[in-house]
Amino acid sequence: MFNKKTQSIDEDYVKGEIAEVKGEDVDVVMDNQEEIADKIQSSNVLKKYTELGKVMIGMLKDYRNGIYSNVPWFTIAAIAFGLLYILNPFDLIPDFIPGIGYVDDFAVLTFSLRFIETDIHNYLDWKLDEGNKEEVEV
């Protein structure tokens, strides 16, 4: 899934990688959601995405369970790609490099979220409208 042909992370790189996401990638995210959450929480660079990460995983879960379907595949793929990128320790800048290891993860997540911001808001509105307020983790 990860193409290392590029030396930089930009909007085009993220869009191209999102286009390659398959349904099985969503399963990998769901199977590793605790590890992804731990990585986000333990990284100073990614910590600001802790609550958003929970919302994105919740959205994937509701989508996968057929509870929430009012979302384009691109949004599901963007969430899966962003979270899988965080999970992968050997991405463009390996996570174990002190000080800069999570900079690329931050960039990928930022670009991914920029593409899907409206859909995240729609999902949160839906959760509140459906009386699922207690399930929204924000």
Rank of each mutant, 00 (worst) to 15 (best):
G16Q: 11
L109I: 08
P98L: 02
L60T: 03
K133E: 13
I9Q: 00
V103F: 00
I67Y: 09
I79W: 08
D104F: 00
I79V: 15
G23F: 05
H121V: 13
A19I: 07
G58E: 10
F74P: 05
G82Q: 12
F90C: 09
I93W: 02
S8H: 09
D27I: 11
N32F: 05
I120H: 05
L83F: 11
L113C: 15
G16M: 07
L124T: 12
I67E: 14
F2Y: 15
R114E: 13
D31W: 06
L128P: 06
K47A: 12
I116T: 03
M56P: 01
D27G: 09
V21S: 04
E11H: 05
Y13Q: 02
V138L: 15
T75K: 02
E117W: 08
F74D: 15
D31F: 02
D38N: 08
V14P: 02
I116V: 10
G23T: 10
L87W: 08
D31S: 13
M59A: 06
N122Y: 04
K61Y: 08
F111S: 08
F115I: 07
I57G: 10
N88Y: 07
Q41H: 07
V21Q: 06
E117R: 14
Y85C: 03
T110W: 02
F96I: 15
G101A: 01
P72D: 14
E130W: 05
K15S: 12
Q33M: 14
L92S: 03
